[in-house]
């Protein structure tokens, strides 16, 4: 499956990773190579196979409805770039 540059740019937008125009052709070739290689899976007959979502042979454990977390605003915000004393911040969003 060959990826064109437009598709690579769209995927980069979905992933929110800046890719320069100059990087697009190289990336398109590289990603096409990898996709071409994984294409080999299409040869496997999986018509009666359930997809495997986890190797863990368990069902979902549940916890009790108990508050276990105390207020810890300082610790939560401590690593935030440009956080103030109460909030994380981002460039202003216009809805």
């Amino acid at each position: 499956m060959a990826l064109d540059q437009k598709t690579v740019a769209r995927v980069a937008m979905l992933a929110r990773i800046k890719v320069t125009e100059a990087d697009l052709p190289g990336l398109a070739t590289e990603l096409s190579g990898i996709l071409g290689w994984i294409e080999q899976l299409q040869a496997v007959d999986t018509s009666d196979v359930e997809p495997m979502t986890s190797v863990a042979d368990l069902t979902l454990p549940m916890r009790e409805d108990v508050v276990t977390v105390a207020a810890q605003r300082d610790a939560i915000l401590a690593n935030g770039p440009e956080a103030n004393e109460s909030f994380f911040t981002v460039p202003k969003v216009v809805e």
Binding site: L41, V44, T46, M52
Partner: peptide, 9 residues
């Protein structure tokens, strides 16, 4: 989805 099926195999 295909990969998860092959994974099962």
């Amino acid at each position: 989805l295909k990969a998860q099926k092959v994974r099962a195999l």
